[in-house]
Write a protein that binds this DNA or RNA. Structure first.
Length: 537
RNA sequence: GCCCCCGUAGCUUAAUGGAUAAAGUAUCUGCCUUCUAAGCAGAUGAUAAAGGUUCGAUUCCUUUCGGGGGCACCA
């Protein structure tokens, strides 16, 4: 709304400037409107006066004053802002009015867990593909990072109005499957080790290596990976097997399509894709000299399936940083198929395992890895999820399992869960004293909520839509746990300052409703992260 | 050699180019006869180094140092 107001004013200012012969080459997208929790700087603030200063050849302060006047003059805005202030060299700070806060609080009470649902997705369909670890062994602590990231991002996008599917791509073809086959047959070329290999050995005896590998992969997915994923709180809509691409001849069809578009050539006995035409640094092989298709050929066919058969409007792949080199080839393929811009790839930097002060390289081949099962067993789903979610995708992660175990009792996730449990405890007392916390929303006397801690709490609650919107746009999921911590802190402060049950009827009811709203927003935030909201702790 | 990510408090991490750099943890100090002290309040403590752009740089650019990843007819 603020942006619209400024834009309207800007347009007239630009027209005016042009008349005066000034070239107002200004980009509104650069405008910052940010939220502040500070009492001094207001609830929202904008830097636009600084950005306009040059074009307008005026001091930022003067521009700020002008804008302030314009915005205050706009009729519907009067109720929303209690005051607008110019501070510093020209920041414009907006203070929300109580009327605005209470009307938003009512909205939360009406919409409950649907509060914060957005329509930015416009019902379009989207797929998030994540983990997709090779089916050659149990999931590792490293895989866990992609797991929560993808799951949480999918939930956020769903809440912002996208029809969202979660998918796991099972690479049950290629060299690693042969290696797995050799391993479960325990022949000379065995590479993978571990107890699970021993268990599979008994079942796979007598098969040929590749068949044994594929059968073992299927077993590992069904018996090991699916169970771990479920314990981690992830529910996939689809498990897509790479071998299906081969059986259904999707790869040949995709290559034939590219050939028809004259994007294929032969060189050195191999079949190449002219990916350089689509922003790649070099062309890529699709069919090797020996007639086998490359991983990229399969991946292009897989994405063709995503966009043309499943008709997704968008696909997001959550990959490990080691797949950095694969992005240009695949993006070129997606572009060549006519789906430029529909694929986003998020790279997650590596998780390194620390033990006794030393970094350990994880390797399924050597049987050296910490499994996600170990982690779940020692710290539990909620702590593990929160631990990974707090970090941004770009940040490397040093993971010390012993430390995680030791710190699990001090994990900030409990701080958030505790806030929820505390609210539930008060609501339980209501039942005991036969108080009905629910009241007709129209009858609520929200005006009685005027303690700074009450207002601060409401201001946190109404951030949820913005958190969802921002995260759906930039995929920075660590914003969600950060918000949850802020929200819990505001609640705990409210709890310190404002007793609920001892107050007189009207204030008690108003505060109980503030609690109901807080409970719903907290629950919903926890749900987005896939973390349990306990009634008791 | 080229490309990508990172370097923030003792430790693990936040922070659209904005104002006093934010949390947890660790250390120290207060607060339970009152709805759950897994809480609240306070103290200590940080942008790897050097230049540049900008009214303003943790953020953008260059260089140096340090850590991780990638540069396949492997997946």
């Amino acid at each position: 709304m603020l942006k619209e107001t400024i834009k309207t004013y800007l347009i007239s200012a630009i027209i005016q400037a042009k008349k005066e012969g000034v070239s107002p080459d200004f980009d509104l997208e650069r405008t910052e409107i940010e939220t502040k929790n500070s009492i001094i700087y207001g609830d929202y603030s904008t830097n636009i006066a600084f950005l306009l200063a040059k074009e307008a050849k005026k001091q930022p302060k003067a521009i700020g004053a002008l804008l302030k006047e314009k915005i205050e003059g706009l009729d519907p805005k009067k109720d929303i802002f209690e005051k607008i202030e110019i501070r510093g060299e020209g920041f414009i700070n907006f203070f929300l009015s109580k009327t605005a806060l209470f009307s938003e609080l009512k909205k939360i009470l009406e919409e409950k867990e649907k509060y914060g649902n957005l329509k930015t997705g416009k019902g379009r369909s989207l797929q998030v593909e994540f983990i997709s670890a090779n089916p050659t062994g149990p999931l590792t602590v490293g895989n866990a990072r992609g797991g929560v990231f993808g799951d949480c991002l999918a939930s956020i996008l769903e809440k912002s109005g996208w029809k969202t599917e979660r998918e796991y791509y099972v690479n049950d073809c290629g060299k690693q499957i042969l290696a797995l086959g050799n391993s479960v047959l325990k022949n000379k070329e065995a590479v993978y080790r571990g107890d699970y290999i021993e268990a599979l050995y008994r079942e796979m005896k007598g098969k040929n290596s590749y068949k044994a590998g594929q059968a073992a992969a299927k077993k590992i997915i069904e018996k090991i990976i699916k169970r771990t994923v479920k314990n981690f709180g992830i529910e996939y809509d689809n498990w897509f097997f790479e071998s299906d691409l081969h059986y259904s001849r999707k790869i040949e069809k995709a290559i034939a399509y590219l050939e028809k578009k004259n994007l294929i050539y032969k060189k050195d006995g191999a079949v190449w894709f002219k990916s350089k035409k689509f922003g790649d640094i070099r062309d890529r092989v699709l069919i090797k000299k020996d007639g086998e298709k490359t991983y990229l050929a399969g991946d292009i066919a897989y994405h063709r399936y995503k966009f043309e058969e499943k008709k997704f409007d968008k696909a997001i792949n959550i990959w490990g940083a080691d797949h950095y080199g694969d992005i240009p080839g695949l993006q070129a393929g997606v572009w060549a198929l006519g789906h430029k811009g529909k694929l986003d790839v998020v790279l997650l930097q590596f998780v390194t395992i620390f033990e006794k002060g030393k970094t350990k390289k994880m390797s399924k081949r050597k049987g050296v890895f910490k499994t996600l099962d170990d982690l779940l067993e020692s710290v539990g789903k909620d702590v593990a999820r929160f631990f990974f979610l707090e970090r941004s995708a770009n940040a490397h992660l040093n993971f010390d399992l012993d430390l995680a175990r030791e710190q699990s009792e001090k994990n900030p996730v409990y701080y958030i869960q505790y806030a929820h449990a505390r609210i539930c405890a008060i609501l339980r007392k209501c039942a005991k004293f036969q108080i009905n916390p629910k009241s007709k929303i129209q009858n609520l006397k929200l005006k009685l909520l005027k303690h700074p801690s009450e207002l601060a709490l409401i201001k946190q609650l109404i951030r949820l839509p913005e958190i969802v919107g921002d995260t759906a746009r930039d995929y920075q999921v660590q914003r969600v746990p950060q918000y949850a911590l802020d929200l819990a802190a505001s609640f705990h402060q409210f709890y310190r300052d404002c007793n609920v049950l001892k107050e007189k009827e009207d204030l008690k009811t108003a505060r109980l409703n503030l609690l109901l709203a807080t409970k719903d927003v907290l629950r919903e935030t926890l749900r987005l992260m896939g973390i349990f909201a306990p009634k008791k702790m």
